[in-house]
C-alpha cells in the first residue's frame, strides 16, 4: 500500500493538465504529526476525470485540497498546465486560482446564506473586476445548470439540496476553470437528485472541456463518472487504473475488499464470496511500517512489514502498490476451511 513512487505519472504525454508528485500533507496535533497524505503522485490529462476513492480518513479530501494549495502541502510538487504551484508567491497563486475550482459536499453550508443566488454566482467576477457581460454570463450559466430566473433571486435556504449544488457548480464554472475538483459533490443528495447532478457534471465537462478530479467514497458513483480511478488508504495510493480495468480485475487486496463490500440488491450475487475487512483503520499518527494496509490484509506476509511496496505497472495503465497483488480468477486467500474467492 505504500503507493510511493512516481510510476503512474505519464510524462511522455503532452496533454497533462495536472501533475502531482510526492505530495505530503501533515497536520501537527497534540498527539504528534498526523500523516494525512504521504507521498502521493498522480496526473490528470486534459478532459479526463480522475476518481479518488477511499474510506473516511484515507486522505482523499486532503489530497484534493492540497492540490488547490488549501493549505499548501508540506512537500511535493503540484503543476497546473506546467506552472509549479507550490513555489508561487501568494499573489501569483491568487492569479492562478480561477483556473482551479472546488465543489464541496454540503451544498447548503458552502453557499453564503445572506446572498441571493445571482450574486453568489457573480461574486468571482466581482472579485476579479470583470464587468463585461457579467449579467449575461451569470444568467446564461444559471440556465445551463438548470436553474430558472425565479431561483436566481432566492437565497440558499429557500432552495433544495440539489438546487444548491447546481448553484455551486455555476459558481465554480463562472471563471471558466481548467480543473474542477469535486469533493463528494453528491453524497448529501437523494438518489434521484444525485443522478441529475452527475448528469449535469458530465454535461458541463463536455461543454467546457473540463478536467476533473472526483472525490467520493461511493464506488458505483466513481465508476460512473471517472475515466481513471485511484484508490487511497491511510494517506497512500494503493492502485490507480482505468475504471473498467480497476473494477473488472482489482489487483490490490484493499481494492478487492472495497468492491466486495458494495451492497448489491441481489443478495446471492456478492455476499458469501466477499472477504469482509476486519479490524479498524490504524491511526494516521503512527501508521504501520512497510505497507500501511498490512494490518488488515488477508495476504500480508513478513515482507509487507519490512519493505514498503512501490507503485508498479501490472497491466498497461494499471498500477498497484503491493508485493502480492491479486491475480484475477485465483483465490484471494486460502484458509483451512476452503478458498475464499476474490469477487469476480
Amino acid at each position: 500500500m505504500a503507493g510511493s513512487g512516481t510510476a503512474p505519472l505519464r510524462d511522455g504525454r503532452e496533454d497533462i493538465v495536472l501533475r502531482v508528485e510526492h505530495l505530503v500533507v501533515e497536520f501537527p496535533t497534540k498527539g504528534g504529526r498526523v500523516q494525512a497524505v504521504s507521498d502521493v503522485s498522480f496526473d490528470v490529462a486534459k478532459g479526463e476525470t480522475l476518481g479518488l476513492v477511499g474510506e473516511s480518513g484515507c486522505g482523499k479530501s486532503t489530497t484534493g485540497r492540497a492540490v488547490m494549495q488549501l493549505p499548501r502541502p508540506r512537500s511535493g510538487r503540484v503543476a497546473l498546465e506546467g506552472t509549479e504551484l507550490t513555489s508561487l508567491s501568494p499573489e501569483e497563486l491568487r492569479e492562478m486560482r480561477p483556473k482551479m475550482q472546488l465543489i464541496f459536499q454540503d451544498p447548503i453550508s458552502s453557499l453564503n446564506p445572506r446572498r441571493v443566488v445571482v450574486d453568489i454566482v457573480a461574486e468571482p467576477l466581482a472579485i476579479w473586476g470583470i464587468e463585461e457581460n457579467r449579467r449575461f454570463r451569470v444568467n446564461h450559466l444559471l440556465e445551463t445548470v438548470g436553474l430558472d430566473t425565479d431561483t436566481a433571486a432566492r437565497r440558499p435556504h429557500q432552495l433544495s439540496g440539489g438546487q444548491c449544488q447546481r448553484v455551486s457548480i455555476a459558481r465554480a464554472l463562472v471563471m471558466d476553470p481548467q480543473v474542477l475538483i469535486c469533493d463528494e459533490p453528491v453524497s448529501a443528495l437523494d438518489v434521484s437528485v444525485q443522478a441529475q447532478i452527475l448528469n449535469l457534471l458530465e454535461d458541463m465537462k463536455a461543454r467546457y472541456g473540463l478536467t476533473m478530479v472526483f472525490i467520493s467514497h461511493d464506488l458505483s458513483v466513481v465508476k460512473n463518472i471517472s475515466d481513471r480511478v485511484a484508490v487511497m488508504y491511510l494517506g497512500k495510493l494503493c492502485e490507480i487504473a482505468p475504471s473498467e480495468a480497476l473494477y473488472r480485475r482489482p489487483a490490490h487486496p484493499y481494492t478487492n475488499a472495497l468492491l466486495a463490500s458494495v451492497p448489491h440488491p441481489d443478495a446471492s450475487r456478492v455476499r458469501g464470496k466477499s472477504v469482509p475487512l476486519t479490524g479498524e483503520l490504524p491511526s494516521a499518527l503512527d501508521p504501520p511500517s512497510g505497507c500501511r494496509f498490512r494490518t488488515r490484509c488477508p495476504r500480508a506476509e513478513a515482507r509487507c512489514a519490512d519493505e514498503e511496496p512501490t507503485m508498479r505497472e501490472l497491466q498497461p495503465g494499471q498500477f498497484v502498490a503491493c508485493h502480492f497483488p491479486v491475480t484475477p480468477g485465483r483465490p484471494l486467500v486460502t484458509t483451512p476451511t476452503g478458498a475464499l474467492g476474490a469477487p469476480a
Binding site: 437528485v193 443522478a195 448528469n199 458505483s220 465508476k223
Partner: peptide, 14 residues
C-alpha cells in the same frame, strides 16, 4: 442509481 456493472459514463436516468 449508478450500477457498478455498467461501463463508465453510462447516462443515468434521473
Amino acid at each position: 442509481v449508478p450500477n457498478i456493472e455498467d461501463p463508465p459514463h453510462t447516462r443515468l436516468l434521473a
